[in-house]
């Protein structure tokens, strides 16, 4: 089962990446994050069938709850509260972004297959998915000039971390839980509080208004 499903889920993750990176509206992006979160939540079940089943179930439930429900809801609520412009204003165009997404995904698969430093029991698929996701997350933070978009990028980056942490889910489930915790605390509460602060001060969520401190 592992061998069959994993490549597909990895591919799905990559596709969700592409969807997020090419979306023109914040709500679509958030939808993409939801999908990605759900896909990631399934991963522990697929990766480690039969091993410490209860723990994996807990991970699955936590993942679905936080990544699939709480986080996107909170984000959506924030967008509504601060009446943010829904259009994403990319620094780099959508078509290039899509191109970038495809290229980095390919590159990740290539790199992971190329480097044989990882132990045998590691699946190249999910690692390369993690790497591709990290590329996308970083890209979103770099290339989007909207605070919420950057938060979404950060969430995607965290998803990459989560994916990676799944590789130690069996031996050290603690770390996976910590990754999810990070989502909850870091990504949402803090970031959205920050968004509120920014909005109350600047009446805008464009990063442009946050570029006064230079040199």
């Amino acid at each position: 089962m592992k061998e069959n499903l994993l490549p597909w889920i990895s591919l799905a993750i990559v596709l969700s990446n592409l969807y997020i990176v090419s979306s023109s509206r914040l709500t679509y992006q958030i939808r993409g994050v939801v999908v990605q979160g759900l896909l990631l939540s399934i991963l522990p079940l697929i990766l480690f069938p039969g091993e410490d089943f209860i723990h994996m179930i807990i991970l699955f439930v936590m993942g679905v709850a936080i990544k699939g429900i709480i986080v996107p809801k909170y984000l959506l609520k924030t967008i509504q509260d601060v009446r943010v412009e829904r259009e994403v204003h990319p620094l780099i165009g959508y078509s290039f972004s899509l191109f970038y997404g495809v290229i980095t995904a390919g590159l990740s698969f290539f790199l992971i297959n190329r480097i044989d430093i990882l132990p045998d029991n590691f699946s190249p698929f999910h690692l390369s998915a993690a790497l591709a996701t990290a590329f996308i997350g970083i890209y979103l933070i770099i290339a989007r000039r909207n605070v919420v978009s950057q938060i979404i990028g950060y969430l995607v980056l965290e998803n990459a971390g989560f994916t990676l942490s799944l590789s130690v889910a069996v031996s050290q489930p603690l770390f996976v839980e910590m990754g999810i915790l990070l989502d909850l605390v870091g990504g949402i509460f803090i970031m959205t509080i920050a968004v509120n602060h920014i909005y109350s001060e600047h009446e805008s969520l464009s990063v442009k208004s946050l570029e006064r401190l230079i040199q």
């Binding site: 620094l91 970083i138 770099i142 290339a143 000039r145 950057q150 946050l210 570029e211 040199q215």
Partner: peptide
């Protein structure tokens, strides 16, 4: 080189990458 610190958080993350 002073453009390095240009105030854009995107750039700063880029440096990390």
């Amino acid at each position: 080189f002073k453009w390095l610190q240009n105030g854009r958080s995107g750039f700063y993350v880029l440096y990390i990458a």
